[in-house]
Simulated assay, not measured.
Amino acid sequence: MGKAVYHDIYVELKKDIDNERYAFKEMLPTEHALAGRFDCSRNTVRRAISELVKDGYVQSVRGKGVMVIHQHESIEFMFGGVESMKESLIRNHKTFQTKVVHFEELEVDAALSAKTWLPVGTQVYYIKRLRFVENEALILDVNYFDRNVVRNLTPERAAESIYEYIEEELRVKIVTSKRYIVVEKALADDKQYLDLAGYDCLAVVKNYAYDANGTMFEYTESRHRPDRFVFFDSAQRLK
């Protein structure tokens, strides 16, 4: 490749780690070797590696170099970013399928408003989507989408990527989300739809999403079988 900026190198090295060209606990090539590979300066390589450090992919080891610390054992979901389920599973290199098991339109009442934070009287789509990962039913998504924001949603679109539909077809910008992660006992729907493998509890991610106007347009509960669930973030100690 020609002269590469640090972001191009970062993307390429991240792809190499995701594809396990550089495996867990393996050392990356030296700065000199990477500078030769990408035809750039060592400073540019250092900038790319610093981005990988921020993402939790590598760690500098004094006197040895840069070691890969990213693992692929479970399905990793980002804590700090806003990412659709489809985007997460593609990033994790998992085969997946979505089945819509419930789809209806309803009006938010007082009890549902207390649960979802959506105002009483809001017209919503109420959807349940079963996520098969590597042919196992591992995740049950329970969604409430504001129909004033997410217009003309259909079961067929819900079986694909709702976020993709919102951003690419409706041109609505998804800006922020608040998430709460709790452990809950398995409910009747969980037992009916999920391959629980003997577990009687789930990791539940409660997500409240907002658009560029500050409108909360989504409340979702993603109900995960706990042995295949990892939510990750990366932090650096500042001292």
Rank of each mutant, 00 (worst) to 15 (best):
I49N: 02
K86M: 05
I69G: 05
V61H: 03
I49R: 04
V45T: 03
R129K: 14
S41V: 04
V124T: 01
L118F: 04
V108K: 01
R129S: 11
R147Y: 03
I127G: 09
D146C: 10
S84M: 03
R131G: 04
E51P: 00
T44Q: 04
V68M: 10
T116Y: 00
T98H: 15
N43S: 15
S84Y: 00
V150Q: 02
V133F: 07
I139Y: 02
G63K: 01
E105T: 15
D55M: 02
F24G: 05
S50M: 09
E87A: 15
Q97M: 10
G56N: 02
F77K: 10
K99F: 08
E136P: 01
R62L: 12
A111F: 06
T30N: 04
D55P: 01
V133Y: 07
R42G: 08
V133H: 05
V45G: 02
L130T: 10
V150A: 07
H70W: 15
A33E: 15
V68N: 11
K86N: 11
I90R: 11
N43L: 10
L34F: 05
Q59D: 08
Y125S: 08
V149M: 04
S41H: 05
M27K: 11
A110I: 07
L130M: 05
D55E: 14
V142Q: 14
D39C: 07
N135H: 12
G65H: 01
D141I: 03
V133I: 15
K25T: 13
P29F: 04
R129P: 03
A114L: 09
E83Y: 09
K128Q: 15
K25F: 09
E26G: 01
V53F: 00
D141K: 00
H32V: 13
V149A: 06
E134Y: 02
D141G: 09
E26D: 12
V108E: 03
A48W: 00
L140M: 10
V61Q: 07
G56R: 00
L28M: 11
K115R: 14
G80I: 01
E83W: 06
N148G: 06
L89A: 09
H32K: 15
E73H: 12
K25L: 12
V108C: 06
R42E: 15
A137L: 01
A114D: 12
D39L: 10
V142R: 13
K86W: 05
F96L: 05
K64T: 11
E31Q: 13
H70Q: 08
V120C: 08
T116P: 05
N92G: 06
E134F: 02
K99R: 14
K99M: 09
K128T: 06
T122H: 02
L28N: 02
P119Y: 08
